[in-house]
Design a protein around this nucleic acid. Structure first.
Lengths: 254, 254
DNA sequence: TCTATATACGAACACTGTTCGTGTCAAGCT
DNA sequence: AGCTTGACACGAACAGTGTTCGTATATAGA
């Protein structure tokens, strides 16, 4: 019980992130002691730098400490956990999203735009969406995002229950899509090269399957391997949003 | 290059799982040498047992070796990798799925049923869906599942391109849904209890948020936290399948 | 100037996946 | 029957991981 007092120890800072903001504590009257002490912002910044260049798998406490010219133990003065660090990264990432003012006429483009922003953020830091899946649902930054998405859907006339569940589904899908992309990327990076296939080689493998056991896969190998860029992503989002438009407007829940 | 010859070494066995099946090699004429040697099936069985009772996080090579009364090195005679073990587990899991004969009139219930089966398998082995996300797309057992799903959708009149992408989206969502559930379960298990919330406590926290910043979240805290059992799962699947029904039938691709 | 104390960090612990080299035992050949 | 062969099992070790303990340091206030 020696080395942490009062306000700035990481456990309390973490708890504050999940608590309703307390206006009277916002003053933050304590100036920093050192001339150049390691701050949480600095830790988060360099961590995001590591993830952006080397991927989330490379973000170890030692690697991060090395990037800050220190040892791993020093990080635990600013961060409770690796999980806590993950939360901070996702929080920073969510804070970068711009949430549009809801426009009832354009709710579909708006919700699609928010999801695309989130997707691009996830892909900018490959593999970080794994941390997003593990987040507690009470983090303030992530709740800011879901609040914004909820506002868009409600303005568009989607029924509240459908809107709530759709946000969950959309966030889950975006995270999974980016996680899968990151895993594929990483496998392409350091695995023995023979094991990873490009689209054409994959299509060739599919057509080479025995036609009696895999008739449809063989016949439609082209469709199964199709999709440049984010075509699959756009398709799935359109599927869910269109489903919402047909189901959610004006009808009772479910 | 001393200790592996001919056919049964794990690297070739793994490669065979991703290659079209070779009928003339199916004889497997070599009987087992020992009286009770460790077999791959035995390894997979005990691994699934460990995952079912203690979760995927607990499935370490040492833990698995201990369950087989041996050391970790012995496992590498039957398994290339931990990734290879993961593939074997997912393969075993996919082999347990029963794929219905496609019925054009009931394609929606059929595809929903396959997804529900997969969900139940994933949840039976908590956290294993993480391994499913990392799988190479050429594994024969997983392709058997997507072949079956493709057959159902095509029989239902869904356009081939929409069917192919929808299968991808459905598999991705099911895996992510179960992964999130497993992560929440594990957090509830060994984390400091205060950090995990039940539905009512979560709703209370949401309503306690400042109404200026989170108006919709506060107002619809009930809807946001609603959903017993697999309500959210059913909702999302219905969303995607309904979207498919409206979009995919009879129309050109996309 | 001197003390109090918040911060930084080297060293260590208990883990992880994986490999090397050796030991052991059953099968096939002479 | 005896011997060789080679597939299998496994102890020990290596390079990593997250995390904690105790100590050293350097600053802020008296």
């Amino acid at each position: 019980m020696s080395s942490y007092s009062g306000r700035v120890n990481p456990r309390e800072r973490r708890a504050a992130r999940h608590q309703p903001p307390n206006p009277e504590a916002a003053a933050d009257p304590r100036p920093r002691r050192r001339k150049a002490p390691i701050t949480v912002e600095q830790v988060v910044d360099t961590a995001l730098g590591v993830v952006a260049t080397e991927g989330y798998e490379a973000l170890t406490m030692r690697r991060l400490a090395g990037a800050l010219d220190t040892g791993p133990a020093s990080l635990y003065a600013h961060v409770v956990n690796k999980a806590d660090l993950d939360e901070l990264l996702i929080g920073r990432l969510c804070a970068a999203l711009v949430l549009p003012e809801p426009d009832p006429a354009a709710w579909r483009e708006q919700i699609r735009g928010v999801c695309a922003q989130l997707r691009d953020q996830y892909l900018k830091y490959p593999g970080i969406s794994r941390a997003a899946l593990a987040m507690a649902p009470t983090d303030l930054e992530t709740m800011r995002v879901s609040e914004g998405m909820l506002a868009i859907l409600l303005a568009g006339g989607v029924a509240p229950q459908a809107a709530a569940w759709a946000i969950d589904a959309l966030l889950l899908y975006v995270a999974a899509y980016c996680l899968e992309a990151a895993i594929a990327r990483q496998r392409a990076a350091h695995e023995d090269a023979v094991w990873v296939l490009d689209r054409e080689e994959l299509e060739r493998r599919l057509t080479a399957l025995p036609a009696e056991a895999f008739p449809h896969t063989v016949r439609h190998a082209g469709e199964l391997t199709a999709g440049e860029g984010h075509d699959r992503f756009d398709f799935t989002l359109a599927l869910m949003i269109d489903g919402l438009a047909h189901r959610g407007i004006g009808e009772p829940n479910r």
